[in-house]
């Protein structure tokens, strides 16, 4: 019987929500394929966490080398597990860990990878992976080879498994990898404001064009009683601090109002704000991805719109 290997992430003794999403999809695929679901986790807390998940078997990789996250030791250890299991399919979340491990283990093992996957289905005896590419503008369907492929899966693609199971857990020793070591974990920077607590966010993206234009966003935020946040390019350009960043590698926010100004809506950004109560987006491109999650949209220039809004708010 073939197997589906699910690479889990364990935080504070618990399986991450994203890992549970992978487990629910693995269970669905396993029933069609007649395969068993095998979960792998890392660190001394993993055996206990894995003992409660919906998998047929689980493998806890333990040892000093994987006690804290280190890309090299995790990759070497995962390769050892894949060598023993020869899974038909290996599922890894497209997190930093997934970006570290997915393409690397696929290349080392000489097997195919489908990246940015947000759908998996069985057709006959083939697994079809759907991937999101070109910043969400296109989807692609790939036929995965039966001799073992790796898929890296976008968080939020599948419902999280709520099923409690009783898999047999075996423990294996981690592969030590002295070539890479942890110096320190850096806690999130505390900014001057906490954007996750704001009811109204005036969020700016690449469309702000110039750091001087941030004044317009500051004035609007001040007039509306909100806080300025931003998308990744604004932080990368050094125009706003990291603590203001909304999205996958920044903060996840759920304000009452999210004004998306000059933000195109890369998947990583949408992941961090799509659950806001009301989203109003201004972007010169009506087909930008942000318009798919926004309730209201406009294509007027944000450099005209921001002062027009500020003027009206101040005049009240």
């Amino acid at each position: 019987m073939g197997s589906i290997l699910v690479v889990t992430e364990i935080l504070g003794g618990n399986i991450s929500d994203t890992s549970r999403e992978l487990l629910s999809k693995a269970r669905e695929l396993s029933q069609t394929l007649g395969a068993e679901v095998v979960a792998v986790g890392f660190g001394s807390e993993s055996a206990q966490a894995l003992a409660r998940i919906d998998a047929d078997r689980a493998i806890a990789v333990t040892g000093q080398a994987v006690e804290q996250y280190l890309p090299l030791a995790y990759e070497r250890s995962l390769l050892q597990v894949m060598e023993q299991e020869s899974p038909q399919l290996t599922m890894i979340a497209n997190t930093t860990m997934g970006l570290d491990l997915g393409a690397g283990v696929a290349a080392t093992r000489g097997i195919s990878l489908a990246a940015y996957c947000n759908g998996l289905a069985v057709e006959g005896d083939e697994i079809i992976a759907q991937s999101q590419v070109f910043a969400g503008k296109l989807l692609a369907e790939a036929v995965l080879p039966s001799e073992g492929a790796v898929v890296t899966i976008l968080p939020g693609s599948f419902p999280a498994s709520e099923v409690e199971g009783h898999p047999t857990v075996t423990t294996v020793d981690a592969v030590s990898a002295p070539g890479m070591s942890l110096i320190q974990v850096l806690e999130p920077e505390k900014g001057d404001v906490d954007i996750t607590r704001a009811d109204i966010l005036v969020s700016v993206g690449r469309g702000i064009q110039d750091p001087e234009n941030l004044t317009l966003a500051d004035e609007l935020a001040d007039a509306i009683g909100g806080v300025v946040s931003c998308s990744r390019p604004v932080v990368d350009a050094g125009w706003l601090p990291k603590a203001r960043q909304v999205g996958k590698s920044g903060q996840t926010v759920k304000p009452k109002l999210y004004l998306a100004l000059g933000i195109s809506g890369a998947p990583e950004h949408l992941q961090g704000m799509k659950d806001a109560d009301l989203i109003i987006a201004a972007n010169t491109d009506e087909s930008a991805s942000i318009m798919d999650v926004a309730h209201y949209g406009t294509t007027v220039d944000i450099l005209d719109l921001m002062p027009a809004l500020t003027e009206r708010l101040r005049g009240e």
Binding site: A140, A142, D292, T298, L305, R312
Partner: peptide
């Protein structure tokens, strides 16, 4: 990787677009 096809995603929804000049759009948003 055997890619069978590329295609455009069907958006689950799309924003209701507010048309007009910046002043008209601002009035509607307010």
């Amino acid at each position: 990787l055997e890619i069978r096809r590329f295609f455009k995603p069907v958006a689950a929804g799309h924003a209701e677009m507010i048309e007009g000049e910046p002043d008209e759009v601002a009035d509607r948003i307010i």
